[in-house]
């Protein structure tokens, strides 16, 4: 990331971190001290997170001040910048990967058969990224059959290894 963009990112992150650390301090202060049961006040569960919250707040404050000195507060966010970001090929690849992985890990695994979920995920992943790289004939004749074969083989191998070798009850 360029220095100017990094200052902007630091500005936003430091505000988030500052709020986060203040929340930690507030929650730590509300934790019980167990003095009523005869425990030492220094064994209170909130001492360490509270202290860590204070340190994090101080470090975030330094980051915030530094980003302001470097003009990080001039965010200059507009529709054009946001659109350009989402039109970048790398951004598209990132969100596609994230979406596919999240869908597999959160919505497929544990909901349907592990073997089928894994076959679907691997096949869709390969197909999504290989489709734009080749022409239609090549995709249909070569890439798709090998993608199906790879998906079935890997899913079966992982399922069998964990089920029968490591004795894990598959999700």
């Amino acid at each position: 990331m360029q220095r100017q963009n990094m200052s902007k990112a630091d500005f936003v992150t430091s505000i988030f971190l500052l709020l986060f650390s203040l929340a930690i301090i507030a929650l730590s202060l509300r934790m019980p001290r167990f003095e009523s049961v005869g425990a030492s006040p220094y064994s209170a569960p909130g001492i360490v997170p509270g202290l860590l919250g204070v340190v994090l707040a101080l470090l975030s404050l330094i980051l915030l001040i530094r980003s302001i000195i470097r003009s990080g507060y001039k965010l200059n966010l507009n529709v054009r910048v946001v659109r350009a970001y989402f039109q970048e090929a790398s951004t598209k690849r990132f969100f596609l990967t994230l979406g596919l992985c999240l869908f597999y890990a959160v919505f497929l695994v544990g909901k349907i058969s592990y073997f089928i979920a894994t076959v679907l995920y691997i096949f869709v992943f390969i197909a999504t990224f290989e489709w734009p790289k080749r022409d239609r004939q090549q995709v249909l004749k070569k890439a798709m059959p090998t993608a199906v074969a790879e998906a079935v083989f890997l899913s079966a191998a992982v399922s069998m290894a964990f089920r029968y070798l490591f004795l894990v009850k598959l999700p």
Partner: peptide, 21 residues
Amino acid sequence: RERLMPFVFVLCVIGSYALAA
């Protein structure tokens, strides 16, 4: 990478799950 990474992620998922099921 598009052939390797889904396999790595499958291992990440099942590996994390397997420790405590």
